[in-house]
Nucleic acid binder design. Structure first.
Length: 192
DNA sequence: TGCCAGGCCCTCTTTAGGGCCTT
């Protein structure tokens, strides 16, 4: 049975998956793209702000000082679920370190806005590409996304922009060509 | 200044501990 892989990434206010808020949700599947920004409800940590370039001033979301168009968090999440629901199943939602970061944050947000059931109807599993690359490739200096992209695609890119991270993750996956069995071993159910 | 989260993986392991990766 075939499956659809959608590559995604979140930019958030920090690393605490129980408390952080989403700033950017981005996803790619082939040439189809989703990208949404939202004004976070809690403060952006200094480290997250330094890495992503995001800040909030006067109720506006700024990236490196320039205002970014935003929608409300529930609007962003509902649009994301609608985007995911437009693909033929089963749909796997892939992120680098999904198991430990992106999936817990997204699941918590979807539950908060009563969107989890709809999401679970569209997406059967997450795919953790960090686990996948660690299992596929041994004895590497690093398994971070920027390092993997530089090593296998020969590119440096604007890391910590969710859309660029998702695009690079898709390219990396296409370059590495993991087997179906390797992919299946790194899936995490959305039914939590 | 340096610490802050945390499940998985590895190994100098299993009666444990440290590093990784994500923002």
């Amino acid at each position: 049975m075939s499956y659809t892989l959608v590559f995604f990434d979140l930019e958030t206010t920090g690393l605490d998956t129980e408390r952080c808020d989403i700033i950017q949700i981005a996803a790619v599947c082939g040439t189809r793209v989703f990208n949404a920004f939202t004004v976070p409800r809690c403060a952006i940590t200094g480290e997250a702000s330094r890495l992503t370039g995001f800040s909030v001033a006067g109720g506006l979301l700024l990236r490196r000082g320039e205002a970014v168009p935003t929608v409300s968090l529930p609007q962003a999440l509902a649009s994301f679920v609608e985007f995911l629901g437009s693909f033929c199943g089963p749909v796997y939602l892939a992120a680098h370190n999904a198991n430990r970061f992106d999936a817990p944050v997204l699941q918590r947000m979807l539950r908060e806005f009563s969107l989890l059931r709809r999401f679970q109807g569209a997406v059967s599993s997450y795919l953790d590409t960090f686990l996948l690359t660690k299992r596929m490739l041994t004895n590497f200096y690093s398994y971070s996304l920027p390092y993997m992209v530089e090593r296998f695609l020969g590119k440096t890119y604007a890391a910590h922009n969710a859309l660029e991270d998702a695009r690079m993750l898709q390219e990396l996956f296409q370059a590495l060509k993991p087997g179906r069995n390797a992919v299946m071993k790194c899936l995490i159910s959305t039914q939590t």
